[in-house]
Write a protein that binds this DNA or RNA. Structure first.
Lengths: 217, 217
DNA sequence: CGTTTCATTGAGTGCGATCAAGCCGTGTGG
DNA sequence: CCACACGGCTTGATCGCACTCAATGAAACG
């Protein structure tokens, strides 16, 4: 029995509807594909669904009424997003790259199998820890330290050599509470210090990991 | 749900226990009392327990290796703290005022009754939302807006007229990522603007709630 | 090849930190 | 009861980091 009716699939993406890829009968959710820059769900939209990245990278953002933009987080394969208690999403989610996403009914997932329930709690808890870590970063760190921390984190999540940054400078700035200019300057400075090296603006290598790690404590 | 509800105190107090308890008390937890400024658990201590405030206010803090102090959050009656996935606490917790705290075994709570499990997920999820809200505050707000937001939040959680602030200026500063001097200046400015009024440094009234709320969006 | 968007660099400004005094409530001992 | 010390809060003066405004450089795209 399918947990997601066909109408749900049509709900996403509006005009350029993403394609529902093959869904085995036993599967607990639907697999959806989103092209780059496509919206996965909107801010203030009803939040009865839960998502897990299969491949690609997803970004959540929020727009304050005064126009200031804030990036909630970036989600890599295996990570859940759209987790929350309320009735409506406080953030919107967009595909940063071409993505495949597993979609689940939230109520069903939470009330159902204790193993799934436990999994969701762990994901929520892990996200809470990330948020707390970032609170420390935003409250008590200089621009230099924030960018250094961001690059270390990115290298840890998307391992590859060189590391690929799927997001642009504006996304990084809105994630770290800085401006694009400052992010750019700090990256330049990190390169001057010999801590990292950028091949192009989306690919870098960490040269002195220990020095960076020590900078962050 | 009565087991962990706001009136759980009564089931242990030895006084009138009007709520039917369908479970031996030992399985729920113990009630502990902490005097003001007492440590409830330490940073890096093993985290096999879970806490809920019965009365009083609790503060969690963290010390970075460079000496910078960060206040995690303040917890009011009914709220859980010590929630996390890892093996050791990333924060320490102290009684901000004289406190009573309900202590639970984490493993038992999580693996046990699905209803309890659900409750813990909701608490974790709520805390995540608070953390996200604060991320926006720290990343994208001026000192003035942060302090305004803090006072609004404090008024909402500890309703009373006038509102009592159980924490000192240093705690507020470390919570908002500011210095004591800046916090003090912003409070002065908020008073000059006629938005709030302080009777003494720990008691205030909100005079123009709408104006403050609009400031924060 | 021209246009657009994104990243970098430079110059100047402003907000919040830092350093340094006062101020005030509280507690303590003479 | 006052004198005094102590810690927390407030106010003032100055400094520096990150923002703003502006221009240039470098890719991406039609």
């Amino acid at each position: 029995m399918s947990l997601l009716g066909p109408h749900v699939v049509q709900t996403f993406g509006g005009g350029a509807a993403p394609v529902a890829v093959d869904r085995p009968p036993g599967e607990v959710g639907a697999r959806l594909r989103f092209p780059r820059d496509e919206e996965i769900f909107a801010q203030d939209e009803e939040a009865d669904l839960l998502y897990r990245v299969i491949c690609g990278v997803v970004r959540t953002t929020r727009l304050a009424n005064d126009g200031r933009r804030h990036v909630g987080d970036f989600y890599y394969p295996g990570e859940f997003f759209g987790l929350q208690r309320g009735e409506t999403h406080r953030f919107s989610a967009e595909a940063l790259t071409d993505c495949e996403v597993l979609v689940l009914r939230r109520a069903r997932a939470i009330d159902g199998d204790p193993v799934v329930q436990r999994l969701i709690w762990e994901a929520t808890s892990q996200e809470l820890e990330r948020a707390r870590e970032r609170l420390m970063l935003l409250g008590r760190r200089t621009a230099f330290e924030r960018v250094a921390g961001f690059l270390l984190d990115a290298a840890g999540r998307a391992d590859g050599d060189p590391v690929e940054l799927p997001m642009g400078r504006q996304d990084i700035a809105d994630y770290l509470g800085l401006t694009v200019e400052t992010v750019s300057r700090m990256i330049t400075q990190l390169q001057a210090d010999g801590a990292v090296t950028f091949l192009d603006c989306r690919h870098f290598r960490i040269l002195r990991r220990a020095a960076l790690a020590q900078l962050l404590g």
